[in-house]
Design a protein around this nucleic acid. Structure first.
Lengths: 139, 139
DNA sequence: TTAAATGCAAAATATTTGCACGTTG
DNA sequence: CAACGTGCAAATATTTTGCATTTAA
């Protein structure tokens, strides 16, 4: 789905250098495109021979977000979570058991009337539905 | 709109004792029903002759949330924010300039089809629209 | 009076920053 | 080689916790 070379291209376009550390973090994100990971979860997935400093992880996920290659959210305990961007605008069904993320398309018209009614100028929105995915509901 | 005695009643029903500290925090929340406040913002609004420990503020807002008298969210920088509950299910237009919150009614049918499609069992949802309110847009 | 609440101090957690050194382009 | 990135250590910031003392009911 998501092309590694595309990502590298976007990063270079944004003035980023491709380092061993960034490649490792990207590999982890590419392996987890349907879950959002915290900095700590990224760290724990780094091959143990390879050491990457926490500060480097934090700096890089922020850099990636600035470059527009990943989306972020904050979970209910205040942790920052990240995953690679998809191309089309969408929202998330988030499984509270296994963390799986299922996308569904964005439908902006739902709240548009309320924007007009209140003369409110939207900059962005957050729509997340929490619950159990089919796999976890079965158990 | 929101009745103080109702709140006290709910708190007592939940086994809470009414203390000087809780009353002060509730007064602040009652004065700010259209903004969400962080623990720090609550602290800064406490009359200066009255000292309330940070730990007490944190314990109380959590207790209030457990008792169902306030709703909470986490802002984009990871801070916990709180405001007294309204009665009817709704979502928020959140002004990023002044912090004002405008409610608009919940319409669940928008994402229902995607729940069915994915056999997803919803427990709760978060819908927030960010931007500028009419007052702040004028400036 | 007694269970719950508070203040204080210390701990836990997540994230950020300064700086010297290493590495990429 | 020059700019950017990294590791390390220390600093922030928010929130949580243990415990002795106070207080509401």
């Amino acid at each position: 789905m998501i092309d590694k070379e595309d990502i590298y291209k976007k990063l270079k376009a944004g003035g980023h250098r491709i380092t061993r550390q960034k490649m490792a973090i990207l590999d982890i994100l590419l392996d987890n495109t349907d879950t959002m990971l915290s900095a700590g979860e990224i760290r724990s997935r780094i091959p143990m021979q390879m050491k990457i400093d926490d500060a480097t992880i934090y700096r890089n996920v922020q850099g990636f977000a600035d470059a527009g290659i990943l989306e972020s959210m904050i979970d209910s305990s205040g942790l920052n979570l990240y995953k690679l961007c998809d191309s089309s605008p969408h929202h998330h069904l988030i499984c509270t058991e296994c963390g799986r993320i299922i996308n569904f398309p964005c439908r902006v018209d739902f709240w548009k009337p309320y924007l007009k009614e209140n003369n409110f100028i939207e900059s962005h929105h957050v729509i997340e539905i929490y619950g159990k995915c089919s796999d976890c509901a079965d158990k």
